[in-house]
């Protein structure tokens, strides 16, 4: 869910009731073209490596989804403790670290040189917040049906700003989407959120990952949410780039707490 889930829920509810008579229809709409843009998806965590950096390019909106990997780039990941690791390309567009180990509190620098341009970004890894428990419960949906819902419980450290991202791995398939939260309303309190999974059933294995993320990474995902969600944003925009010069994508150094459960 997004930043103010209740307000968004409310707006969505209001809109949906008012426009109960509304319908949708596919339309032919000409869109402007854009030059392919470089996309850099890079993650470092406190779990053992190797860590992966993925390079690809954007496509025109109505084209198919053949997002080809970008080969031949030179990628260097370094930290403020003096470790410098040059990544190895293991498949087209997929690059892996060789030895560097993510450590809480260190600042990481990423340098991607591709097609004559060098892109840089940096990120500091926050402290991990441990998971208290993962609980599966049955919940009645808006329309009265029973759904299984896994919720991750954790206690927010008091007195500091924390930013979280939750990723669920259902039978080893990671969830998509941002799923970010901040502790503005519940600083220092126990909190629980649904583990994104796309629906769980008895027998599934679910791994809940609670990521402590950097404020800048939170901002990136939040910009994405704010400019793409419902309630019709007036000016949808691509999030401000974390890279200099600008490239699409993000660089996140985060600490992970994980818990695995078998859905009863």
């Amino acid at each position: 869910m997004k930043k103010y889930p209740f307000i968004r829920l409310l707006l969505a509810g209001l809109t949906s009731i008012i426009v109960a008579t509304s319908c949708t229809e596919k339309i032919d709409l000409k869109l402007n073209n854009s030059e392919p843009q470089l996309v850099i998806e890079a993650n470092v965590s406190n779990k053992p490596g190797p860590y992966t950096v993925i390079l690809s390019k954007s496509r025109l909106y109505y084209e198919n989804n053949a997002f080809a990997g970008i080969s031949g780039a030179q990628i260097i990941l370094s930290d403020n403790a003096g470790n410098i690791d040059t990544l190895t390309e293991i498949a087209a567009g997929f690059y892996q670290t060789n030895f560097i180990q993510g450590t809480i509190g260190r600042t990481y620098q990423l340098e991607v040189s591709s097609e004559g341009t060098t892109y840089r970004a940096s990120c500091t890894m926050p402290a991990a917040v441990s998971i208290d428990s993962v609980v599966v419960r049955e919940e009645t949906g808006f329309n009265g049906e029973l759904d299984k819902d896994a919720r991750v419980y954790f206690t927010d450290p008091a007195g500091i700003e924390n930013f979280y991202r939750i990723i669920g791995y259902k039978n080893e398939v990671p969830s998509s989407g941002a799923n970010i939260h901040r502790d503005r309303l519940w600083d220092g309190k126990q909190r629980n959120y649904g583990v994104p999974s796309g629906g769980i059933e008895t027998g599934d294995t679910l791994i809940a990952n609670l990521l402590s993320i950097d404020a800048r990474v939170y901002q990136f995902f939040n910009e994405f949410n704010e400019s793409s969600g419902f309630a019709q944003p007036a000016a949808p925009a691509t999030p401000n780039s974390m890279y200099t010069p600008g490239a699409l994508g993000y660089f996140s150094a985060h600490a992970i707490s994980a818990d695995t459960i078998l859905i009863p």
Partner: peptide, 21 residues
């Protein structure tokens, strides 16, 4: 503002927007 492209990130396809309006 309509998307002028799309890209793949984080297991999702995201719209790419250019200049406003």
């Amino acid at each position: 503002t309509f998307p002028i492209g799309k890209y793949f990130l984080n297991g999702e396809i995201l719209p790419y927007y250019g200049l406003r309006n």
